[in-house]
């Protein structure tokens, strides 16, 4: 299992070298969105309207942070459970997005979309919100402020630690890891 440091936006060249189980330190810009924001973003794509940010090479972080303390760019910011975005993610990947960061398993359609459009599903450590929040150096709400913690934010990260769960070859770390350690009576 290899270790990489990558800077966004990601290209197919970046994503194709990654394999399930690899660890990556991400740098650059990420966009935050949970289900409520995804619903709106996908509706814009379907209507052919302009999105609040450029999807090409983008990495979407599934997170609803806590409010920042005075002087901090953001509060605690760990990943939320990803399956709630399953119905939206293939459309995002088809339209240029190259990565997602969350926690928990994805459905087959998302895994297939990762193969078809050179996308990666990264896992970050759930419940490590204080640690992950510290790797975010700036944050700005760029759309849907009325959604509160679920608004779309443009955030800058430095050495943000993630693990490749689903790669562009159809591999799934959750299935591989579990198979390795499962004890059958």
């Amino acid at each position: 299992m290899a270790q990489y440091t990558l800077t966004t936006p990601l290209t197919s060249k970046d994503t194709k070298k990654l394999k399930a189980g690899d660890t990556v330190l991400l740098n650059g810009t990420l966009f935050t969105a949970r289900d409520a924001a995804h619903k709106r973003l996908v509706a814009l794509i379907e209507k052919g309207e302009e999105l609040p940010f450029d999807l090409e090479g983008s990495v979407i972080y599934f997170v609803g942070p806590t409010p920042p303390k005075p002087g901090d760019p953001i509060g605690s910011a760990g990943p939320t459970t990803s399956y709630r975005m399953d119905s939206f993610s293939p459309t995002m990947l088809k339209n240029g997005s190259k990565g997602m960061i969350g926690k928990g398993k994805r459905d087959q359609a998302v895994k297939d979309a990762c193969v078809d459009y050179d996308g990666i599903y990264f896992g970050a450590t759930g419940g490590a919100g204080a640690l992950l929040g510290k790797q975010i150096t700036s944050a700005e709400v760029i759309a849907y402020p009325e959604l509160g913690p679920e608004a779309v934010r443009k955030i800058t990260v430095k050495d943000f630690p993630v693990t490749v769960i689903n790669d562009t070859y159809g591999n799934d770390l959750y299935q591989m890891g579990r198979k390795q350690y499962e004890v059958k009576d």
Partner: peptide, 19 residues
């Protein structure tokens, strides 16, 4: 990482998790 997170949260008074 979870334990390191707990240390950071306690020392810097940051929420352990965003949830």
């Amino acid at each position: 990482q979870i334990l390191e997170n707990a240390d950071i949260a306690k020392d810097e008074k940051r929420p352990l998790c965003q949830d």
